[in-house]
Amino acid sequence: MDYKMFRAINRLAGRYSVMDELMIWISNRVRYVYIFLLVFMWFRDYSSKKASRHAGVSALLSLFIHGFIKRVYFKPRPFVKRRVGILIPSKRDSSFPSKHTILVFAVSTSVLLRERMLGAFMWGLSVLTGLSRIWVGHHYPSDIVGSALIGSAASVVVDKNSRFFDALVYRVMDMFNKRIP
Score class of each variant (00 low, 15 high):
49 K>M: 13
56 G>S: 00
127 V>E: 02
75 K>L: 12
110 S>E: 02
52 S>H: 12
121 F>L: 14
50 K>N: 08
66 H>S: 10
44 R>Q: 15
61 L>T: 15
45 D>L: 03
65 I>G: 07
124 G>L: 09
93 D>R: 00
85 G>W: 10
64 F>R: 05
94 S>V: 13
118 L>D: 00
49 K>G: 14
77 R>V: 06
104 V>P: 05
94 S>K: 08
115 E>K: 15
72 V>R: 07
82 R>M: 05
62 S>W: 05
78 P>D: 05
117 M>D: 07
71 R>S: 15
118 L>F: 02
130 G>A: 03
70 K>Y: 03
61 L>G: 00
86 I>H: 07
98 S>A: 11
56 G>W: 01
108 S>K: 09
140 Y>S: 06
48 S>E: 14
51 A>V: 15
140 Y>L: 00
55 A>D: 01
115 E>A: 05
83 R>S: 09
113 L>H: 03
99 K>C: 06
84 V>H: 05
99 K>N: 08
106 A>T: 08
101 T>I: 11
41 M>E: 04
97 P>L: 10
92 R>Y: 14
46 Y>A: 10
138 H>Q: 10
46 Y>D: 08
107 V>K: 09
130 G>P: 10
53 R>Y: 13
79 F>T: 02
111 V>K: 00
95 S>Y: 11
71 R>N: 13
67 G>L: 07
74 F>T: 11
97 P>W: 11
120 A>Q: 01
81 K>F: 12
53 R>N: 12
49 K>S: 11
86 I>Y: 06
54 H>I: 07
47 S>P: 06
107 V>I: 15
91 K>E: 13
42 W>L: 02
126 S>T: 04
108 S>G: 12
49 K>H: 13
92 R>H: 15
101 T>Q: 07
72 V>G: 11
111 V>N: 01
90 S>P: 08
85 G>L: 04
53 R>G: 10
96 F>V: 08
117 M>F: 14
124 G>H: 07
55 A>I: 03
112 L>Q: 00
129 T>D: 07
108 S>N: 13
59 A>M: 11
60 L>M: 12
72 V>Y: 12
72 V>Q: 10
71 R>P: 02
76 P>W: 00
95 S>P: 12
89 P>F: 14
108 S>H: 14
83 R>D: 07
110 S>W: 04
45 D>T: 02
139 H>Y: 00
62 S>Y: 07
110 S>R: 02
